[in-house]
Design a protein around this nucleic acid. Structure first.
Lengths: 223, 223
DNA sequence: CAAAACGGTGAAAATACGGTGAAATTTTCA
DNA sequence: TGAAAATTTCACCGTATTTTCACCGTTTTG
């Protein structure tokens, strides 16, 4: 179980880390939202402990960015004085809130709660798994099945598919795809998207039909 | 957030109204389907709470009428004894069902659910859905439906239609259309517009009537 | 009433666009 | 470090789309 702790105060990170490791989990750290986004692009974590107020990139924006490609449970940390729009946070996919100052015990209880909730939902077959006819996408294991058979997608292919599915029914330009899937710092060719779509379609076999081309625009996923 | 409550029983309206307002929404009332249709023509609401059984015009018919021109989420209220064709309701665009007697809490949860679903969809995409009788334009998915059937427009056709609709009721010269839809750097023939209008009209079937020719000027979209 | 102006239309010609395979480049991992 | 895998670029090609244009019926004008 990997936990990423995101907070700009080193002391808070240290305290949390000690307790997380005491529970037998692996703890990782990030100093701000920017670093968290980068780390999440490269690695898979099971829970995010995310501070709201941070330099460079705040917690909400970071979560928004991360949730674009990964479905990770998030627990937000905020000072009691800070009042945030909980509905907004909820829509963002925040699983829980903890207000500072918090007792480490409390935080651990939340972590256990969200991870248990996740695994329970997974057992029930609800969360983590998306299905479109014979196409199954298992977010947890990052696996895609075509008629029950595992398709071996490359990381980009998986992320592209996941992004398309998250935005199903929505017309997406190549620019938007490059920005959101490849990252804002990608300055390459448009046609890169085409090639990855081609590869993805090839791997999805008959379910290539879900990916529809919008001439002069881009692509969309449609069931 | 405006909620229109449609029920012939005043007591039920009052109860619902109290809870809706307690949640911080604005509540409006209508006594029957007829009144609901009229109110919806004149005003914009965010959710409709619609009873099924009502004098003058029943809930289903009212929804059918309203959905012709507006795309508003609808929650139907019906007595437990009344058994309705849920599939029919679904096709009509009913978002949810509540059976009487209901707990106000339950109704509020449904309202929050449908509105959240809406705003989430809106955040993700560009805009909503435009409706003119049986002609539906879905900007998010870039789809156009003629009497529920998907029309396959070419990119230019879609852009032209969208531009006309955005400026509905306004006379547009060919020059303006070329400049705004084709781009300022288009130095081609005027008649290009004509051809695309022709194609568009062909695809809109009976709703070609919305595109009116202004002799000596250009075109406009008028409902 | 005739002539001119205008828009609708179909078909042909020109063009833009996306699919594709292969090569070049970068990244990953043993 | 070197081989394998993944990513990215790119040019070719078929086709969907766009554009042009001439012809024709209708409307407007002098």
């Amino acid at each position: 179980m990997k936990v990423l702790i995101v907070d700009d105060e080193e002391m808070i990170r240290d305290v949390l880390k000690r307790y997380v490791e005491f529970e037998g989990f692996e703890a990782y750290e990030a100093e701000d939202g920017m670093e968290a986004v980068r780390l999440c692009k490269e690695n898979d974590y099971d829970v995010l402990l995310m501070d709201v107020m941070m330099p460079r990139l705040d917690g909400f924006s970071a979560v928004k960015e991360i949730k674009k490609t990964k479905d990770i449970p998030v627990i937000m940390l905020s000072a009691r004085s800070e009042e945030y729009d909980k509905l907004f946070a909820f829509e963002l996919g925040v699983d829980d809130y903890v207000t500072k100052p918090f007792s480490p015990k409390e935080v651990m209880a939340r972590i256990n709660a969200v991870t248990k909730r996740r695994s329970a939902a997974q057992d029930a077959g609800v969360g983590g798994v998306l299905k479109f006819e014979g196409l199954t996408i298992d977010q947890t294991g990052r696996n895609v099945y075509v008629d029950g058979e595992k398709a071996s997608l490359t990381p980009k292919e998986y992320e592209l598919l996941f992004y398309l599915v998250r935005n199903k029914g929505i017309a997406l330009t190549r620019e938007k795809l490059l920005y959101d899937v490849w990252g804002f710092d990608f300055y390459g060719d448009d046609r890169t998207v085409d090639t990855h779509i081609k590869m993805l379609r090839g791997n999805l076999k008959e379910y290539r039909k879900f990916i529809v081309t919008l001439r002069g625009l881009g692509y969309k996923f449609e069931v």
